[in-house]
Structure formats: structure tokens, C-alpha cells
Amino acid sequence: MSEMIKITYREALKAGIREALTNDERVFLMGEDVGRYGGAFAVSKGLLQEFGEDRVMDVPLSESGFVGAGIGASLAGMKPIVEVMTVNFGLLPMDQIVNNAATMLHMSGGQINVPVVIRMSCGIGKQLAAQHSHSWEPLFAHIPGLVVLSVGTHEDARGMLHTALEHPDPVIIFEYTSMLNREAEIPADAGPMDISLAKVRREGKDISIITYGIGVHKSMEAAEKLAEQGIDAEVIDLRVLRPLDEKCFLESVVKTHRALLVEEAWGSINVSSEVSARIMEKAFFDLDAPVKRLGGVEVPIPYPLHLENASVPQVDDIVNAVIKILRP
């Protein structure tokens, strides 16, 4: 095992971008305030100075325009990393993403590839209120033609971008603002990460907690608490929200016979809905208890901290839900 280093999620993201810019002349980063400002969340701080303004491009407020331009640049041989400051502004370029990036290969009968990578930060957690706290991974995960990634760990923060840039199709990467300052250990030589598989983050035999993004950390914490009570939970990080790696979570459910699905996105018609449906279709007879979902409460996210916290599943909610399933 190689040497481990302590790194923040932000540093891991930055290392990934930096490496991509270093390795391939065709890669460039474009987005609002990625350069002179240093990145809205300081992820790209210093990269403008290091790589120059052709490689790290500040763009005006025109999400549809510059995301479309990123798509166009990818059609014509570049490898753009397009940053949409946060998913909250992600509906403005939604047309470009859904109607251009996701359709071009198909409409052209397989002729035209769109190898664009679009990064968006997302999630709740700083009392930013209704318009700035969105968890819209499911909106994008609904679209055939897109690869949708959720960066739930530091290793993925470091290594998913590399693989996304090698993918011939459009990749959307969701990063979690509330994790930026979080530290974790990763191997000093951490490199490219796979972008096709879900991963078991903690093995267990009593129940499968299936989640992604910030939910991974909450679920891991919950699993530790549950262990103190003699419950051995398995935690699965979906990582790739489209196309879903169902083999991973179905195998887990077949082993544990129980499933709790956790995510922050609004509770109905979210990623868990799909996971639940697939478990019903493909592992129903292996279940010892009904599948349970814990999703976001279906309200615009309120400003006060206590209400914000109440809007999404917390560690104790996960613990309680698991206990209810196992010890009804």
C-alpha cells in the first residue's frame, strides 16, 4: 500500500483539474469566475496564473451560451471542462445539455461525439435558502445520453475527472459544496478512478444502505453508530447515477435482504425511486422487508438552520430508519 496523504475535497478536485490541464493541451477550463476570482469556491485558485487565460477562461454570465460553446468546442476537437458555478444555475444551460449534448450522437446516427465534461457543485448546507440549495442530480440522471457522476469521496474528487475526460460522451460531474473543506486520507499517488461502477464503501451483512454524494458520509457515520448497537450495515456509494450500476446494489441486497435508500434530492421521482424499482423487479424474492427510502422533504429549502437540517435526511434519521427495519 502506498503512502497516504491528508487532503481536502477541494484540494483533491483541484489536483484533478491541474493534472488534466498539464497532461493534455486540448483540455481547458471554462466557467464563471474560474480564473481571476479563483473559482467561486476557490477550487481553481491559482490555475489561471499557472496555465494562462487560454487554458483557464473566465466567461460572462451566460450559462446557456458558454455551456453550448463548450459543447461546440468538444465537437471540434477540444476537451473542455465546463464549470457551471452551481447546479442552481444549471437550468439555464439545461437545453444545451439535454437537446444538444445528449442527443447529437443519436440524431447523427452515431457520427458525432460530444466529449464534453460539465462540472457543477451542488447540495444543501450553508443556509442559502430555496434558490441556492438544490439537489438536482435526478433531473440530469433522467437523460439518456449523459453520464452522470456524483463525487462522494476524496479519491473520486481526485480521479473521476481524468476518466470523464477520456469518455467519448458528455459527462456531468456533481461535486458537493459542503464537502469542500472536509479532510480525508488518500494514497499519495491516487490517480484515475473508474466511472462506470458503484462501490461498496463499507461491508456489512444486515442491511444495504444505498446512497450517493454527501449521503455517503452520513451513511458511513450512521453505520458506525449502528455497529455500536450490533447492527452490521453495508454502505453502497452509487457514484454513477446514469447509467446505474445495478449489479452492485442488487448483489448487496441479495446478501443483506434489506435496503434503505438515502439521498438529499426531493423524495419522490428521485434516484432512489429508480433503485427501489429495480430492486422490486430484480431482487424482490430476496427481500425480508420492504425497501425504505429516505429522501429530501418536498419543500423549497428554507433559510433557518433548524428547518434546513430538517429538510434532508440526517445521520440519526438513517440510524432510526435502519433500526425500524431490523427491529420493527
Binding site: 458558454f66 453550448g68 459543447i71 461546440g72 468546442a73 465537437l75 471540434a76
Partner: peptide
Amino acid sequence: PMATGMALASKKL
């Protein structure tokens, strides 16, 4: 916007 982006790529390349 795609047209602008394609031209941007032509310039860069």
C-alpha cells in the same frame, strides 16, 4: 452557442 464554441476550438487548435 455551439457554433461559437466550434469556432473557439478552431482558434485554439
